[in-house]
Nucleic acid binder design. Sequence first.
DNA 1: ACATACATGTAATGCGTTACATGATTAC
DNA 2: GTAATCATGTAACGCATTACATGTATGT
Lengths: 203, 203
Amino acid sequence: MSLRHALLGLLDAAPMTGYELDQILDETFGYPWTAPRSQIYPSLRQMEAEGLIEAEVKHTGERERREYRILEPGRAELARWVAEPVPYAGARDAAHLKASMMNMVKLDEAEKLFLAHRDHFRQRLEIWNKRIDAIQAGTSPLLEARLRDQPPDEQAKLIAFKLCGYEGSAMRARTEIEWAEHGLVTVASLRQATRTPNSIDVA
Amino acid sequence: MSLRHALLGLLDAAPMTGYELDQILDETFGYPWTAPRSQIYPSLRQMEAEGLIEAEVKHTGERERREYRILEPGRAELARWVAEPVPYAGARDAAHLKASMMNMVKLDEAEKLFLAHRDHFRQRLEIWNKRIDAIQAGTSPLLEARLRDQPPDEQAKLIAFKLCGYEGSAMRARTEIEWAEHGLVTVASLRQATRTPNSIDVA
DNA sequence: ACATACATGTAATGCGTTACATGATTAC
DNA sequence: GTAATCATGTAACGCATTACATGTATGT
């Protein structure tokens, strides 16, 4: 149940609408959690009913916006959750599973999959790097909002842990890229071996 | 929908019962996919109904065992799935999310979480390494069963891709361990900074 | 006028977790 | 006799994906 805590964490930085939260929880933004609208809006309503957050209904002409702010019970719940152990799930990785069965398909197909994997995580890495740069340069609006009402030593903690979280994501992306490249080398050497069946495998 | 393909992949090596599949798809075994009984048995029944696999009902005394074997449509579906692009999901990592909010908890709590992360992935790495060793040593019964009726150049492909899949899992585990250690360093340097508030941060 | 961004939701379906439920065989 | 292993399931619940559904404000 991390979605609720991702939302609480964002609302802890600044009051926001569901729409704004949705933009941050989008794949392309680069937040360590993603979710679609269909999860966000009901979740906000639920947390409001539970007294974790509070909505202020604002009107822009005819349009209604519900701006949510975090309440003390919400902040307490967030702190409780952070300290709670991570519920590590069993290994479940479609890319690794496929790789282990690639003997079933042509080497060209295997190569395509590894290229797609590398490209996907290259894009991801770019996103994480941008976020890391923004945190370090002080150009992340959310983080700057959070830093405002904090004492100096709390600021250092805040920045250090934010960076740490994003570093984890970046490290993972780098590993995936590295693995995909390893896969491409494997494909290349198998191709070589098939072309010259009687030579010794150079890999 | 990778569970079905994990099952098909295993049945492609040798006919098996749901019970045997459950043991392999357990966290502690070290297969790149995990699943509980409650998913395995219904999945097998469904694939049987769809003609992808076939059950041979065997009797050991009073007890009934349903031994499933893969059929040609099942093998075809498996090959189709392997070549299909991986459906990459949005980033969703509770550990990274928590790390980015660790400013909310005591440094001791943060340290505990990183230690747990490191230990969890150390255990995982050990499991992956054992599987890699077994593949290389030729002591994996499943792989040996698979190798039997394959021509020599297909055998090389099989081993290379199996290793590649497991290497991916091992690389990931190593990265998680490294990240946890990075987190521990971060905690330690913050602790130092809090103890000697006027000194320059040595991190 | 038209496109884009703003803004909020519901419904259906599938995957994954946890708990519940039962009983036979084998080894000690 | 009793514990571990073999063996097969069902039920309830929650989280995630995709599709559906609607309408306003703003910039060009």
